[in-house]
Design a protein around this nucleic acid. Sequence first.
DNA 1: CGTCTATTTGAATGTACTCAAAAGCGGTGG
DNA 2: CCACCGCTTTTGAGTACATTCAAATAGACG
Lengths: 194, 194
Amino acid sequence: MDTELILKNVSRFITLTDEERDYFVSIMRPRTYRKRQYVVQAGDVCKYENFVTKGCLRSYFVDDNGFEHILQFAIEDWWIGDMASFITQTPAMLNVEAVEDTELIQILKADLDALFDKYPKFDRFYRELIQKSMVTQQRRILSNISLTAEQRYLAFRNQYAFLEQRLPQNYIASYLGITPEFLSKIRKKIATNS
Amino acid sequence: MDTELILKNVSRFITLTDEERDYFVSIMRPRTYRKRQYVVQAGDVCKYENFVTKGCLRSYFVDDNGFEHILQFAIEDWWIGDMASFITQTPAMLNVEAVEDTELIQILKADLDALFDKYPKFDRFYRELIQKSMVTQQRRILSNISLTAEQRYLAFRNQYAFLEQRLPQNYIASYLGITPEFLSKIRKKIATNS
DNA sequence: CGTCTATTTGAATGTACTCAAAAGCGGTGG
DNA sequence: CCACCGCTTTTGAGTACATTCAAATAGACG
């Protein structure tokens, strides 16, 4: 198991002693998923916090009409899951699925809780991690309530150019909250106007 | 200063010793704001984490055309601020403003950081607090990208009936990401259909 | 009471969706 | 290696959702 990336991820916020690092490593569970395979399926309980070491995933909600709405993408060095399900250990509303063949490091809820109790430093890490992603989510909400679809797409493309290349367009449309047909028209319009 | 509410808020997640409680109380700064007064003004640095003991506030973004877009409301027992500005201590993009005459307990960034260092338990508290609000935000994002304005309004009204009564309609429209005129038409339509 | 802001109403416009069909593209098996 | 199948993307016409602008009405506050 390659722990370098995840340890670097953690050490952006906290500095670990050898003991803390060893304990942390001991609760890591590497796992691989094939493209289109579920990491979490709606209805199941999300048992793990998932750190991506390789590949790409998405979390999404399927509405009553069967339409998918993507909440999040994750690539290398990102965390993903269904937080609501994970913290309450109740059935997930979201699916988490591999967009490419993917390698994860998983941490079981009980192991993470024990880690927090044993080394409160990890509470700090996790707090700062979530704080950052709160800020990202807030920007997304503001984008959703204040911009047109075209503006949202341009903003997305600006911020996540590296992601756009790895994703089918209909996923991006779903993330932006528009239909794939309309995104196609937006792209055509942008292409001709420049 | 009435510290009962905030101590109860904290003790939903952690249990405090007398020492911890006293220290925590010692860094609290009560402050009152009049209706329409800014707690944070865009461009300023958000210096405090704000806990509401009485009243109602909103945080919002003003776009290039001068339109306001409301990110969050907060009433008694809620926390509010500009998290991006607070954690990085850089100028705020958001305004935080009293919707009613309001009483807050404020905690200075430096004091909060010291609290986290001295009593890591508060890292835990803050982590769990933010985790909960992440889940709320995720639901909001899904609502924004998957529902029509009417459905979003009904969902809002369902979940925040107590809030709706204290807020002008144009604030709710702004929160939902629609124009006040359109919200008025939605309400009319709902009223006739039932 | 008067002023200012919030809400309602309506007509015209623009934004985004639906449905259907065609074209493009990638993966898989023969 | 090519042909085929399924899925994604494009395109267009028609429709529904939501905004803009303007004016009238209603409410709140000093």
